[in-house]
Design a protein around this nucleic acid. Sequence first.
DNA 1: GCATGATCATTT
DNA 2: AAATGATCATGC
Length: 225
Amino acid sequence: MSIAYLAPPESEAELMRRAQQIAGKTFAEVASERQIKAPANLQRNKGWVGNLIELALGAQAGSKAEQDFAPLGIELKTIPINAQGQPLETTFVCVAPLTGNIGVTWQYSHVRQKLAKVLWIPVEGERHIPLAERRIGAPLLWQPSEEEDQQLQADWEELMEMIALGRVEAITARQGEYLQIRPKAANNRALTEAIGPSGERILTLPRGFYLKKRFTAPLLAQHFG
DNA sequence: GCATGATCATTT
DNA sequence: AAATGATCATGC
């Protein structure tokens, strides 16, 4: 009854072969190969699809503060799409650092490192499709273009400046053309340290950086459009 | 609490 | 309908 783990891919080519081999399969098929079962829905298993794809490709499941395929320098992201291939959800990137941001620049930011090279796995996400019957799409290995990098940098700098100036609680998800900041927490009692309006220590909800759909939609469309 | 994996569900 | 703000599970 234990999970059938797969050894990590030894090259980018091997990773891509694996990704192409699961393309077109249903979640149930891939889950069966890994000796696991699909839950009825994602309500209490929000990360289930992401974990399934990790297992199917041989990523280390679980918590590590590095890329999924660190030796290959590749981050794995599943992205739920509709029948037209458009994203159904924003994409979580990383937690937003609320303290200790003196002298931090875009070039060495966590956001930029995470997005340096991403293997996107589109997956059917429409809720009318039973979870087990949803299919995996064709993989896309992506690196940000100069233009995309600059788009993200502009949003990042605006948002990080607000955090540094003690205005984290004034940040709304409406800000940022392509990159936004929203809560990222277990619940509303989870608090973390931040800088307040007068430079004082405050406790606030942890926040995360997310890619808006208007960033990921064209990215997917260029490849599959 | 923080980092991993995200989607849910209420509001607009 | 779509986006924002809130939340769910798991392992340290």
